[in-house]
Design a protein around this nucleic acid. Structure first.
Lengths: 347, 347
DNA sequence: ATGAAAGCGCTAACAC
DNA sequence: GTGTTAGCGCTTTCAT
């Protein structure tokens, strides 16, 4: 026997095709019909066909999540949260890589194939073409990141500036006066805004010495290489370094260890994103929490809301930052794991 | 204007609908027709509809990857590799959680909705119902893990036994005689086979003292808790502990640090999976590499091959293990990062 | 090489 | 409440 279709079920149940569809989908139908159809469907092992239903309803039950690198823990954490929110509404999640700027635009254009009902996108670089494509898209999209003011697209933003300010403040309180910022690629959204936050926070005080360095990528390896170069180039040692993200921060800690520098006494290190890596490193990495899981959740909720009502005015949600202090900036708790107390990272 | 369909393109190009389809899909068509159709499609911004095409062709261009927890780095690494292999063939990747055993079976049954062309599944627990569902599935599936002998399903297996033997051998060479195994849930595939490997490796020598403990989950937290309990219960200290995976291994290192035990001198620790976490911890975590990325790649290749030719006899591929030695078992390299030398983890 | 027409499996008007 | 029918957008016979 081939595929069991709704027609087979209808015949078996002795009712019309339409009634079968209605009964199966909880539309108006008499109890008797529902019963007959249910039984017939169960006997035949009927399973509705996605493609046929999608063609008819113009809905797929799928959402896409697109990021530059699914290997980065911060995206993994977002994805996990997004998956759990949308799965509760019976949506499946399709993962895509954004690739370069052109590929990202292609990805957005491709939405018009109708293979998903919505998109959550966290682009590393935002181009005009991307904004245009997003605004023109018939498929709802929400962006985790920063778009130009007035872009007609739902966005969920982190408060990078505020977050970095928390880090600077914390370091200064701990006695640091010479503070460096180790950026990633400066032409990216995180690179730009996190750096800007650093500049502003430093400018608000006049007793700080600061400088910026930059890693070629948002990875441990690139962080290690850039930190090594930084150590070579600086005449006087830095009191502290703020990394553009946790991966780069870990790279800095490795480089420091290689030089025989002790963290935090010789050098304090702060990461950004507060990923689970911060608790694996030793000492633990103090990190700015930009609310990745909350941003993921918010993005999913915004998307679901927009799909519900496409006429909604575009919204921009900003998630507040916080600072998670660990051993990389304060000597006390460095040898005692937080697992001892049973407290976890905020979820 | 609404959706641009192939009919619009046909009209614009002045040829029939059928010719338009053929021209667009590289079927037989005169150069002139192709040219006209191409131009018309470009002018109108035609984008083919996925659902309609899928309904007709019975293909979706999608593959599913299902695991227990997309947060576990080992699955992330597999997913990354799988995505890159299948994206090269223009497949999209749908991620799903396996959930409990029943949910896993439901997931496999649901394949018959036809929303994907194939599935890569890495189940934590394998039930008879799951094997039956897999064998009955009309949609090709490949399992990363262990199935009962003779199951008619493509599988990619790790050599857990061989891998754990490498770890034991390495520890013994380093002078360890009292070696514990810290398992995860014993009723899971990894729990069962990794433990079995330990038992066999230990049994092959008569100069070892050993014992098994077990964490409630494959996580850092559970590893920490179980290691703490282990430290409490053991009369004499262990020379070394082999963890069921890297996460549990990291948990052990945390617990050791909390007790004031120095790794590797007081206690050597070995993880399994050789995830990127092994390079974040300090000292680096020696780990058994079970070839997660290779398994991912192999699984993707097997799946693509089976979709190409469904008549293929089921295959079982076994990926060889290796051991990656780091500071958690040997004192020398513990303070110098591997990033100094520029060498990376095997890919 | 091209066109006419059927039909993939389903849902949604519409009439009863 | 139920049945008949049209049609979602596309690919693929089957003629020509």
């Amino acid at each position: 026997m081939g595929r069991v279709t709704i027609a087979d079920v209808a015949k078996r149940a002795g009712v019309s095709l339409a009634s079968t569809s209605r009964a199966l989908n909880g539309q108006v139908a008499s109890a008797a019909t529902v019963e007959k159809v249910r039984a017939a469907a169960a006997e035949l092992g009927y399973i509705p066909d996605s493609a046929a239903r999608s063609l008819r309803t113009r809905r797929t039950g799928q959402l896409a999540f697109a990021v530059a690198d699914i290997g980065n823990p911060v995206y993994v954490e977002m994805m996990r949260e997004i998956e759990s929110v949308v799965a509760a509404e019976d949506y499946r999640l399709v993962v895509s890589r954004t690739g370069d700027a052109d590929a990202t635009v292609d990805l957005v254009r491709d939405l018009n194939r109708g293979y998903v009902d919505g998109l959550i996108l966290s682009p590393l670089r935002v181009t005009d073409a991307l904004v245009t494509a997003l605004e023109a898209s018939t498929v709802p999209a929400v962006v985790i990141g920063r778009l130009p003011d007035g872009a007609g697209v739902d966005t969920v933003m982190a408060d990078s500036e505020g977050g970095v300010a928390l880090a600077v403040e914390h370091l200064v309180t701990g006695g640091a006066r010479r503070i460096a910022f180790l950026n990633g690629p400066a032409d990216t959204t995180p690179g730009r805004f996190r750096h800007a936050g650093f500049l502003r926070a430093v400018a608000e005080r006049n007793d700080l010495v600061s400088a910026e360095y930059s890693a070629e990528d948002f990875t441990i390896e690139a962080g290690y290489a850039a930190a090594s170069a930084m150590f070579d180039s600086a005449e006087d040692p830095w009191d502290a370094v703020i990394a553009v993200n946790d991966l780069v921060g870990i790279g800095i800690m490795h480089a420091a260890a290689t030089r025989g520098l002790t963290v935090p006494t010789d050098l304090a290190v702060v990461g950004i994103d507060n990923t689970s890596l911060t608790e694996v490193s030793h000492p633990g990495l103090t990190s700015v929490d930009l609310g990745s899981t909350r941003r993921g959740r918010k993005a999913a909720q915004l998307l679901l809301a927009r799909m519900e009502d496409p006429e909604l005015a575009p919204r921009a949600v900003r998630v507040p930052p916080s600072l998670q202090v660990r051993g990389s900036t304060t000597a006390q708790p460095s040898s005692v794991s937080r697992f001892a107390s049973g407290e976890g990272r905020p979820r």
